[in-house]
Design a binder for these strands. Structure first.
Length: 273
DNA sequence: CCAGTATCCTGCAGGC
DNA sequence: TGCCTGCAGGATACTG
């Protein structure tokens, strides 16, 4: 479930370690992931390159190399990265290991293989199928300006719209659910049946819930990529997600659950209209 | 174009 | 205890 805050936390951790490091070797076996993982091809593109500051777009991580290329990584649902010494035992489902010139190894582990890692040569980013259609980042501080009109123009449930990465990039099931709770809006409500005022409130809630998660993650930043590295999900206090049947923290009513947009969704029938 | 559903994959929880 | 089913999730192919 790495969503934007989790990916951003990983990015910040990597930003402390990767810039200036040279890639010495790439290991792994070909594997069917979201895209075919081809470690030998990655080795040909990456070996000998120095890394720059990593970037993030939505839930995608871009490990830039100094020659203008980038390793594009998506963690899917079950993926995580670890930066460890090469001698450490390799976790099951580790598909890729990148050895750096400081003796450490960056490992991609992903049991469900919904994630991937692929090399983008210089100039290929704009045309990449995953990145080309991506909407503006959900952390954009102008989100209250551009998101409401996009939602207003659609009749799908707001929950489905928030999960659409072409509209806004970075939200997954957890934070979409939480943002709707904070805004007091029912997840099933169609975008075009919601007032602009409430859509602005929703956009603000999106940003706030992500910032809160990010600051919660910041406190445990060190754990994310430590040698003992837990993959690092936040212990954020969630109001709705995972609390079906429990009392609403705000009003005490029992939280409802249903599948909306193919995802389990939780909301308060009293607070959220 | 738009909305909704199936699909990929593994681990785990729950039912019987 | 062990088997089976269903769910979890992100992106995308597909259908209507």
């Amino acid at each position: 479930m790495p969503e934007l805050p989790e990916v951003e936390t990983v990015r910040r951790a990597l930003a402390l370690k990767l810039p200036g490091r040279r890639i010495e070797a790439v290991r792994g076996r070909r594997a069917r992931m979201r895209r075919l993982l081809d470690p030998p091809a990655l080795a040909r593109s990456l070996a000998g390159r120095r890394l720059a500051l990593p970037r993030r777009r939505g839930k995608y991580l871009l490990l830039d190399t100094e020659d203008g290329g980038a390793l594009l990584i998506h963690l899917g649902m079950s993926g995580h990265l670890q930066l460890v010494s090469p001698g450490r035992p390799v976790e099951p489902h580790t598909h890729l290991a990148i050895r750096l010139d400081d003796g450490r190894e960056l490992r991609l582990t992903d049991p469900r293989r919904f994630g991937f890692a692929a090399f983008l040569p210089r100039g290929a980013e704009a045309a990449d199928p995953s990145l080309a259609g991506l909407g503006p980042d959900a952390l954009d501080d102008a989100i209250e300006g551009w998101l409401p009109p996009l939602l207003k123009a659609r009749r799908a449930p707001l929950k489905a719209l928030l999960l659409d990465q072409r509209l806004v990039a970075g939200l997954g099931n957890i934070y979409a659910t939480e943002a709707l709770f904070r805004a007091g809006i029912r997840p099933s409500r169609p975008g075009n049946a919601t007032s602009s005022t409430r859509l602005r409130r929703l956009a603000g809630s999106v940003r706030n819930v992500l910032l809160d998660a990010l600051s919660a993650g910041g406190t445990t930043l060190r754990d994310h990529l430590s040698p003992d590295g837990t993959p690092g999900y936040f212990q954020v206090e969630l109001d709705a997600y995972g609390r079906a049947g429990l009392p609403c923290r705000r009003c005490g009513a029992l939280l409802h659950t249903a599948r909306i947009a193919g995802r389990s969704t939780v909301w308060c029938p009293s607070c959220q209209r």
